[in-house]
Write a protein that binds this DNA or RNA. Sequence first.
DNA 1: GCCAACGTTGGC
DNA 2: GCCAACGTTGGC
Length: 207
Amino acid sequence: MRPAKRKCGTSGFESNEETILKKVKNMTKLRKQKPAKDNSNEKQQQEEYHCWLMKSEPESRIEKGIDMKFGIEDLMAQPNQTACWDGVRNYQARNFMRTMKIGQRAFFYHSNCKEPGIAGIVKIVKEAYADHTQFDEKNPHFDSYSSQDNPRWSMVDVQFIRRLKRYISLSELKKLHLNHKTSEGPLKNMALFTRARLSVQPLTQGF
DNA sequence: GCCAACGTTGGC
DNA sequence: GCCAACGTTGGC
């Protein structure tokens, strides 16, 4: 059954900046700190992240004959407005996906496009499992070193929740980030800037 | 284990 | 389309 398309809810991002900041602050706050151990390079395992940012390209780009386009509208058009997040080929991004739990939320970020920025919110509806595209020779993300017995790459399923009431562009986020670096604001450690090239990331850096 | 060369990401 | 940043590969 396909649920009726959601309207942009009234609980959405308001159009004023204060409320956006409050929201981000709240989402950031949900990050839970496990009891600290002294081994600092285990930090990533010690810390549980609850809110994510996942990048996808909303504009057509052909790679080995396959269109990489997958914007938020493409997600909305899927059955159940749900899609698997295949194609991640970076270990850190993969590892983050492997820690994702059902029900957690992520910002859907539009990358490599005219106006990069956050377009909407999705939720994790299936936890990490093998990414089938790694076994498909015709797929741009085929990995000949991976095996069915021991798959190297994982993916999760995400479901559309809603668009943001207004698109939050990268340039706006960057301004906030720069301000927050001096004012100790909530976007001070936003991974979008501290780990710019990661395609799957927790909202704020702590790793 | 170092690090140069190479490949990819993604803003601009 | 350029290219900076940075992750990966592989020679040594």
